[in-house]
Design a protein around this nucleic acid. Structure first.
Lengths: 231, 231
DNA sequence: CGCGGCTTTGATGTTCATCAAGTAAAGTGG
DNA sequence: CCACTTTACTTGATGAACATCAAAGCCGCG
């Protein structure tokens, strides 16, 4: 982890539009003054389960994963998050400590805004409070819907769904490098490593995707969508 | 649906402590003035998918289910909610229309608070805004954790988990009447009706529960907990 | 170089969905 | 009130989907 030496003002930050649109100039400056931006290298840990929550975390650039350590020394990935997502927004207001860990799976710029600052602005600016509520509501909706969808699908459907998510939402490209191991994908969508591999191989044989080590290219998007829906 | 003829003031409502603790007397009176309470009989529909959201719904007494209608004429139950739960809180701030239906599975008292009133108070009273945020955050956490747990379990584990939830959180009694059909339980936890029945029968044979029509009594709580955890 | 972790494939057994068939219970119309 | 229909419940048989076990190749790293 290293501090970014040129810390941009919040005024120029694309997140401003995302969440701070309703904040007057004066308040935005206060927010700007109580934030820290850091660069995390690929693989570095951002948050450890149990850490005290004293800031809101968001991802400006890069890719991170949320995960829990489960008893037998394994990990359970909760989600993979891309920029423009308020990584820690889900439970930071109801807990005093993190119930999951976060680490960077690509070099990432991460911004920490002090929690007391955020709370002060929420208390002072009513429209900002409503914005936060709306955003939280949206995130919850999305995460829950995704989980409900995934739960009902068979294994082929889950893999198809995951590949589509990576291509369409995370990388916005039909060709991308799998950001996590096959074992971690298995964790993420509740199946076994062997079956992740097997189904990826089937998709390759069926000419739905090309596999080149960690690189995946989707060559039959329509069929993949059908499999995801049918699953 | 029938209007409750003696509408109690919010001051005496147990929900006051739950959410409106930080609201001054004056504001609580305004909230009190823009709410409606109704009695819904068992089976009556409270909200239909697609209805415009113009109030916050909460359950004061009774039991309700949230569900979606899915294409083939079937339904998917999302959750069963008990009193002291803000039924509609999950997505009411990010959508203009309901994305699920709600119906009463026991006679229920339901309170509707006009959304504009709530929003006005959020904007005006900062601590109230923070309370709402905290509550939403907690609900999200709980619902998500439950879904993550359930997803990973095998069928026996899911049934055990569901029975424990009903006994411990919903009815607070080792003996209770199943509030929904076995088919609906299957929907709720993503399995087939036949397997719900089969596993309940197995639990009966293993002397974990007693079944008397719709009445279930848990007689080996420890084992049920083990099965839920092991699942 | 050897060790450990990730990947891959095959063989095998378990879990679960599906199909079929029958009973009980509950509503419906004459 | 009874015949009739529908819906919920229940059990068994079967096959498909999936987890588990085993073994081998690959690759990075000390």
């Amino acid at each position: 982890m290293s501090e970014l030496n040129s810390i941009p003002k919040c005024e120029g930050c694309s997140y401003k539009l995302l969440l701070f649109e309703s904040l007057p100039e004066k308040n935005l400056e206060r927010i700007s003054a109580c934030k820290q931006q850091y660069l995390f290298k690929k693989g570095e840990q951002v948050i450890s389960e149990g850490d005290e929550i004293n800031s809101i975390v968001y991802l400006q650039k890069g890719l991170i994963k949320l995960y829990k350590n489960i008893p037998n020394g394994k990990t359970q990935i909760i989600s993979i998050a891309r920029p423009y997502e308020f990584v820690g927004l889900l439970s930071v207001f109801s807990n005093s400590n993190y119930i999951y860990s976060i680490s960077a799976i690509e070099d990432s710029h991460i911004c920490f805004i002090d929690m007391p600052c955020i709370k002060d602005e929420i208390k002072e600016i009513g429209t900002f409070a409503l914005d936060i509520i709306k955003k939280m509501s949206k995130i919850t909706d999305d995460v829950l819907n995704a989980k409900y969808e995934l739960c009902k699908k068979n294994l082929r459907g889950r893999i198809a769904y995951t590949l589509l998510d990576l291509a369409q939402h995370i990388y916005k490209d039909n060709e991308f490098e799998l950001p996590v191991s096959r074992r971690e994908i298995a964790d993420l969508i509740d199946m076994r490593t062997e079956n992740v591999i097997r189904i990826l191989s089937e998709f390759r044989k069926d000419k739905i995707i090309k596999i080149n080590g960690p690189i995946i290219e989707i060559i039959n998007m329509d069929l993949l969508k059908k499999i995801s829906l049918a699953g």
